[in-house]
Amino acid sequence: MHYKEFDEIYQQETTEQFKPSSKKLKSEEISAGIFVNNFIRLLVACDFCGKYRCIYSKTVLNDVEMEAITQYFDNIIYSCGLPIVSDDHFLANTLYIHLNLTCNLPIEHNYYSCRLKDVDLCFWCGSEDELLEIPSEMQENWKSIYPPCALCQIEGKNWETRSPK
């Protein structure tokens, strides 16, 4: 891939034409029905923001596939919004991730109901420290409540809720 020199494009008008998130990617062409908690096979942490993102597959990964994807993540730097694997990887038509999630967005809702989750995290920043206790009145009114940490609440971010009772 070739990029223009900085001096050549500085102060030039730009467009969104080549922005990766603007392009229709293979994982966006699949049925949205795959993005449910029953199809979460792995969790991957972004190397920049630290937030966990869910990796989906309609099929359970066998030992060879799990080993391959584990080794793959050991050798790359993952960032929110990027495809899981390249189009030529043998798992390219098996693994999917929400490509529209960026580092400035909260953790996806499915994380909180997935069986792989081993710790609650702040919905907004992904921290496991200083999570606030869920008020009992919220538990009475909402089926799903996603916690903020103390720092995010100080910054004005509140409880995220879904599905009123």
Rank of each mutant, 00 (worst) to 15 (best):
residue 1 M to T: 09
residue 3 Y to L: 13
residue 3 Y to V: 15
residue 9 I to G: 01
residue 10 Y to D: 11
residue 12 Q to R: 11
residue 15 T to K: 03
residue 18 F to P: 01
residue 20 P to L: 09
residue 23 K to R: 12
residue 23 K to Y: 05
residue 25 L to C: 09
residue 27 S to G: 09
residue 27 S to C: 14
residue 27 S to M: 07
residue 28 E to W: 05
residue 28 E to G: 05
residue 32 A to P: 01
residue 34 I to F: 02
residue 38 N to Q: 07
residue 41 R to L: 06
residue 42 L to Q: 04
residue 42 L to K: 14
residue 46 C to Q: 10
residue 48 F to L: 12
residue 49 C to Q: 11
residue 52 Y to K: 14
residue 53 R to E: 13
residue 55 I to L: 15
residue 55 I to F: 05
residue 55 I to R: 11
residue 55 I to C: 11
residue 57 S to R: 08
residue 57 S to K: 08
residue 61 L to Y: 08
residue 61 L to W: 08
residue 62 N to C: 15
residue 63 D to E: 15
residue 69 I to F: 12
residue 70 T to W: 00
residue 74 D to T: 09
residue 76 I to N: 00
residue 78 Y to T: 06
residue 78 Y to D: 08
residue 80 C to L: 00
residue 81 G to D: 03
residue 83 P to H: 00
residue 84 I to E: 00
residue 85 V to M: 04
residue 86 S to A: 12
residue 90 F to C: 05
residue 91 L to Q: 03
residue 93 N to E: 15
residue 96 Y to G: 01
residue 98 H to P: 00
residue 99 L to V: 12
residue 99 L to M: 07
residue 99 L to P: 10
residue 100 N to I: 10
residue 101 L to N: 13
residue 102 T to V: 14
residue 107 I to W: 00
residue 107 I to A: 02
residue 108 E to D: 11
residue 109 H to N: 09
residue 109 H to W: 02
residue 110 N to L: 04
residue 110 N to T: 06
residue 111 Y to H: 05
residue 111 Y to G: 07
residue 115 R to Q: 10
residue 118 D to N: 10
residue 120 D to V: 05
residue 120 D to M: 07
residue 126 G to S: 06
residue 127 S to D: 14
residue 127 S to Q: 09
residue 129 D to W: 02
residue 131 L to V: 12
residue 133 E to Y: 08
residue 134 I to N: 03
residue 134 I to W: 03
residue 135 P to D: 07
residue 136 S to I: 13
residue 138 M to Q: 08
residue 138 M to A: 06
residue 138 M to T: 03
residue 139 Q to K: 15
residue 140 E to C: 11
residue 141 N to I: 07
residue 142 W to V: 02
residue 144 S to D: 14
residue 148 P to N: 06
residue 150 A to I: 11
residue 156 G to Q: 00
residue 157 K to T: 07
residue 160 E to K: 13
residue 161 T to L: 02
residue 162 R to I: 03
residue 165 K to P: 09
